[in-house]
Amino acid sequence: MLIELCEVTKVYPMGKQGFYALKGLSLSIEKKEFIAIVGPSGSGKSTLLNIIGCLDKPTLGKYLLEGEDIGQKDDFSLAKIRNTKIGFVFQSFNLLPRATVCENVLLPLFYSRIPRRQRRGLAEEILEKVGLATKSNHRPSELSGGEQQRVAIARALVNNPLIVCADEPTGNLDTTTGREIMEIFAQLNKRGATILLITHERDIASYASKIIYLRDGEIVECS
């Protein structure tokens, strides 16, 4: 089992009792699954994905990633896990605006202490895969939304992660571009990547092998 969540609760400090964004949620995910997380706004989708992506820790409950208890890890181990095992894709792309496309893709390699000389080659290889080899030296602002998201995907993939976490990756894109992006995810999944993807759109969710419905911090349906 790749991912196991057991009674995971996330409480945000708010008011007297705090706000329960996740309420004792249990879930397990196998390798090579393609999972869509859907649900109304504020249902805790991002909160869940951030915990699975090791950006955040659960307040209560257990999260095992490849059998390791993430709750027990310190900051440095979490950074290392994010660097080597997780790839993030966000709705708003989150590229460094001042860096070139290539430099953005290189960023994770920089933190995995890969020698400078090898980095460029790896980045170009990945950019090739997402069809952006020619835009390597452009700034993100010079690219279309779809292209920017492909750069973000390239960045998420450059370290060969176990899991790709995508929080509404098509949310800022038109339907056609969104579909192109989803094709990339589908390809990745075919080649063996585990994908967790948040979406609002039904036809986007249809790419997934499994759909998790969330409401008010609880799983209401899983199919």
């Binding site: 950006l55 950074a79 290392k80 994010r82 993030f88 989150n94 460094l96 960023l107 933190y111 995995s112």
Partner: peptide, 14 residues
């Protein structure tokens, strides 16, 4: 930017 860097694996020290 700091958030992005941390998301892709930057440690506190980085």
């Amino acid at each position: 930017e700091i958030g992005i860097r941390k998301a892709v694996g930057a440690t506190k020290w980085d």
